[in-house]
Design a protein around this nucleic acid. Structure first.
Lengths: 229, 229
DNA sequence: TTAACAAGTGTAATTAAAACACTTATATAT
DNA sequence: ATATATAAGTGTTTTAATTACACTTGTTAA
């Protein structure tokens, strides 16, 4: 151990959040317009600083709550960024997190206060500092994670149709999937509950609604089953 | 952005390294015995503090060089740990890295100076703070990474036999692999160069040596090929 | 009544993964 | 010199997973 509890080398710790949402068509991220220098007026991720009284996960939760008004969100630590002059004001190391939220649930007033806006990942604006690297890595991690753990449901309302589920995965993976193969695959996993209810928005016939049966999934997972899309 | 460039909330940034090696039989990690308080005499990961003049990757390289005497090592950032009292002395956030080194190449004098020692991952001692969590996550990440990117070679000498390669993967994945299937798989990837040379250590017949053809791999990768064990 | 629209459904073909056992080369012991 | 022991080396068959693919159903609105 190179021993040196020397306060001269302390740094500011920031947390920046890549907030993903899904609007039934495209994968989106929530960005804020900076209203202070440096880079005032530019788009950036929502961020904040780590406080003495909290750990990084808690800081990310707090930041997310401030912007969206929602709590109990899927949050995962992504990576830490430490280029010496990444923030021109002061030495700052930023820990990036990504979040999955149901886009319908967030507080629209709040995000207006922060001059925040949803952008499709395919046409998001340029971002400050190293935030674009963060987004890129977040998308890649999201693709992996949603293919191996059933967290995609976090992006959908509690009740959803097979088509919505498929479109969500297509938006994340960036490729079209075959309808029949997709449904066969999902059904073979046996972790959804089919409801008697139908969604009548999307077609005249209506399409059945499903929910993710988390209890069932957990029981199966404990028993050695592993989700694989 | 929650704006608060307030130095009161600065923290010490530590870097801790999970150093993996492979001794032809088992996956190993290099641990150091702490010679200072707190937890003096306990085993821990090799660590150090981030300096103003370097980024995290550089700090990890420096720490690794100090302990092993080697440079240009495969290093990957793993995760950041920030529990408030994880270090009882002072608020410290630690960024864990893992490294893959050819166990034959490290400087044995240096590690003696640090009272460091190699342990099989299956019977490593208890570790200080949250270092055991770090090791656990590192193994899991290593399994994923070595299955999707050809980095396992970092653990082997430049020339290696098929059997050594197989044993290395078995040690990482924690399961036996079928010899014929393994060789067929590796050969189908077409990223090794078979040498005329044989290794005569392991058998009377001798076994052919191979090297990883990184150029070929890169060309193929650029062309859409993806390594998958 | 029929035209339009998305929902819903199953099978065959292809590809990938897994299971499996004998022969070869060589050093050492008899 | 011959036999024995040891690890290297080598293909095929079986099984499982993935992919490709097209018509019918229910309902509303024209």
């Amino acid at each position: 151990m190179i021993h040196n509890y020397d306060s001269e080398d302390k740094a500011l710790l920031a947390v920046d959040c890549i907030i993903f949402g899904f609007d039934q068509e495209e994968l989106k991220i929530l960005l804020v317009k900076r209203d202070f220098e440096p880079e005032k007026g530019m788009w950036s991720l929502m961020g904040g600083f780590l406080k003495r009284s909290e750990n990084l996960d808690e800081a990310a939760e707090r930041i997310l709550l401030h912007l969206t008004g929602i709590n109990n969100v899927y949050l995962e630590q992504l990576h830490s960024y430490s280029k010496i002059d990444r923030d021109p004001v002061e030495r700052t190391v930023s820990v990036a997190y990504f979040a999955l939220i149901n886009i319908e649930e967030h507080n629209k007033e709040l995000i207006k206060q922060y001059s925040a806006q949803w952008f499709n990942i395919s046409n998001a604006p340029g971002l400050i500092f190293d935030h674009e690297m963060m987004v890129k890595k977040a998308i890649s991690r999201l693709r992996y994670r949603t293919s191996t753990v059933p967290i995609g449901f976090e992006l959908l309302p509690q009740k959803f149709t097979m088509r919505q589920l498929q479109k969500m995965y297509e938006a994340i993976l960036g490729e079209k999937l075959d309808k029949r193969n997709f449904i066969n695959k999902i059904n073979s996993l046996d972790i959804l509950r089919k409801l008697d209810e139908k969604d009548m928005e999307s077609s005249k016939k209506g399409s059945f609604l499903y929910t993710f049966d988390e209890q069932k999934y957990k029981r199966k997972a404990a028993d050695g089953f592993s989700f694989k899309l």
